[in-house]
Design a protein around this nucleic acid. Sequence first.
DNA 1: GCAGCAAACTTGAATGACTCAAGTAAAGGA
DNA 2: TCCTTTACTTGAGTCATTCAAGTTTGCTGC
Lengths: 147, 147
Amino acid sequence: MDDAERLRQAGLRVTAARLAILRTVSGGDHLDVDAIHRGVCERVGQVSLQAVYDSVNALQRSGLLRRIEPAGSPTRYETRVGDNHHHLVCRRCGRVTDVDCAVGHAPCLEPASDAGYLVDEADVIYWGLCPPCRAETGSTEPDAVRA
Amino acid sequence: MDDAERLRQAGLRVTAARLAILRTVSGGDHLDVDAIHRGVCERVGQVSLQAVYDSVNALQRSGLLRRIEPAGSPTRYETRVGDNHHHLVCRRCGRVTDVDCAVGHAPCLEPASDAGYLVDEADVIYWGLCPPCRAETGSTEPDAVRA
DNA sequence: GCAGCAAACTTGAATGACTCAAGTAAAGGA
DNA sequence: TCCTTTACTTGAGTCATTCAAGTTTGCTGC
């Protein structure tokens, strides 16, 4: 199924901007809105930043994009949806890397007690230093993992 | 050990504002900066919002407060530090509830593959609806848990 | 193919959490 | 009690994101 078809199935109109967003996000690596905007403009000419915000929200609501919101850095998007993976986030440079779920299938995590909540999603972020930043800072010793 | 002693041990000065912050946070339930500010002003009179920002940052750096940053809502703080617990967050009202780690001891989570990262912390947030919001919306069916 | 409508897009302004900067007050060791 | 350093105050600034109002465009039905 191509992107246009995916948009239609989600009840969204097929526009050059949205196709370019899907292409840019799937070709990039956990891009933020600004990076998506630049990529879209390269592909199809001037598109307003607000149109990108509007579209990524619509695409996320429709399940075509997954939103990642690491504390303290702007929201990022990826096209890998519906599977079961988490994220490694670099404290220093903000890089985000996919990591498969340790359990391997959804739901990979259920709280020990749900306190009466109706839980629909579990978000797992591992914080640390990515390999390039490790090399630059010379860090080898992990602190104790706090969870 | 009382709060003043804890502050000294962390190399921080003991001030009325900081004692009030510790009291307010430990007496509250995952408060945001604004709520902490109101609580502090009630206890010790006018304190600037910036002083609260400054202090919660210092206290967090020293390990006296833990910071929780659910996507899309302001940062919250709690005094339960150093143990091994996660959070349930209500999508509707933003309420945060502690939940013990399913594994029960740190490190409770290590990624299946660390991709070369030096991981020092794992953040787990379960998203859902808290009991009051469930009642109000009449939600009973969980979506599939996506992780 | 064309009309009409809702969705998408544009421009421009606003919001809100948070940070930065410079000066003043006060904690706590000498 | 003095002195240094940390904490606090006031005020301005930043940045991601949203809101609002008006225009354009994709698409459904004729």
